[in-house]
Nucleic acid binder design. Structure first.
Lengths: 204, 204
DNA sequence: GTCTATAGGTCGATAGAC
DNA sequence: GTCTATCGACCTATAGAC
């Protein structure tokens, strides 16, 4: 019944952390953020729960690391594609479509990250990480916009920060609305409206 | 130290529930969703924690009732103003400004409701309530759009459901983006872009 | 008011890497 | 032999249920 030789596997702390974060993501996706605990993560990873304490020091550190890694990874994925060197309206419209497609590929995971982020905002210990996530998103969008502007060689009629804020808000809206409703039927309408809102922001 | 006469106050179950939900809102706003417990709510209301069990049966029922009441109340508040009988772009732009103003009046409370809703989506017991919240929002927007259309006597170039989805997504975006960033400086830009996206949806 | 389950945190011992 | 990572056991606080 019992294993003949318990054969411990020894990992470097950094590797162990990565492995445990993978396990944490699985727990979160499968059973929800509320199910995250030292024990559930340890069980999923096949180690004693003490190992999680050892690797992260405390649950707070685990959640902080999880939020950081997930938000960075998923944010990068969502904004991986460069903006096409086309008129602003078309470029952003295409980007928003790509954005939704990316959400679709890992719907539950994005949903759970949203939950984790919402939770983080009301926690003194995590509010910093939530703030960093938002800054990272803004940064990614800014990067895309600047690359696009350089390729297009046209001028904006508004400051870059305004355009970034608009695209950011549109993306948040798309994410929140689609994750909540799953309304595939109206995605095109919403994307079209959001991109149409950009007319006049680029000087011909 | 103790009150001389403990003078119990007896309340009808419905009144007691209302009072406890008020207390729950206070706990949630003051200490976050994670701090919600039978005991914290009871303490805030000044009753024995057993009373909360009696009134709601279980914590799940308490949270369900809380989510229902909060989402209905706040949704109604956000969409209380009728759409002005003006061109669609202007009417929706004004509505979105009102929407943000309303968010501002009770920022933390809206933030916490968002957290509660995100949590509800991954809970089998609460997903129904979360779904109902979304339907209620859609219903409110639909009501406003229909009243506006009746007053304007113009036609839409898209189905009503499309316009509702667009406004809904815009509102979600505004809420998520503004609650996350608190970026008052760019609210006007975002609202302008979102309403500009509606050009052409109304037949002149 | 009490019981119990859960979960975070900690200690001593040990297996395995170097 | 020493150091690091691992494990199981234990303690305590919290919170839901009865």
């Amino acid at each position: 019944m019992n294993e003949p030789s318990p054969r411990r596997t020894y990992l470097d702390v950094d590797d162990r952390r990565r492995q445990l974060l993978d396990a944490a993501v699985q727990v979160m996706v499968h059973d929800g953020v509320a199910a995250l605990s030292l024990r559930s993560v340890a069980q999923r990873a096949g180690v004693a729960h003490r190992v999680v304490s050892y690797a992260f020091g405390s649950k707070g550190e685990l959640v902080t690391a999880l939020l950081q890694r997930e938000s960075e990874l998923l944010t990068r994925r969502l904004w991986a594609e460069p903006l096409a060197p086309a008129p602003l309206v078309d470029a952003v419209g295409a980007a928003l479509h790509t954005f939704v497609d990316e959400l679709r590929l890992d719907r539950v995971r994005h949903e759970r990250l949203a939950e984790l982020t919402a939770m983080a905002r009301s926690s003194d210990a995590l509010v910093g990480a939530a703030r960093a996530e938002i800054d990272a998103v803004r940064g990614e969008i800014e990067r895309l916009v600047e690359a696009w502007a350089a390729a297009r060689k046209t001028e904006l009629t508004v400051p870059t920060t305004s355009l970034v804020a608009i695209i950011h808000a549109a993306a948040e809206g798309l994410a929140a609305w689609w994750l909540a409703t799953g309304d595939d039927e109206h995605v095109d309408d919403v994307v079209r409206a959001f991109s149409t809102g950009l007319v006049g922001l680029e000087r011909a």
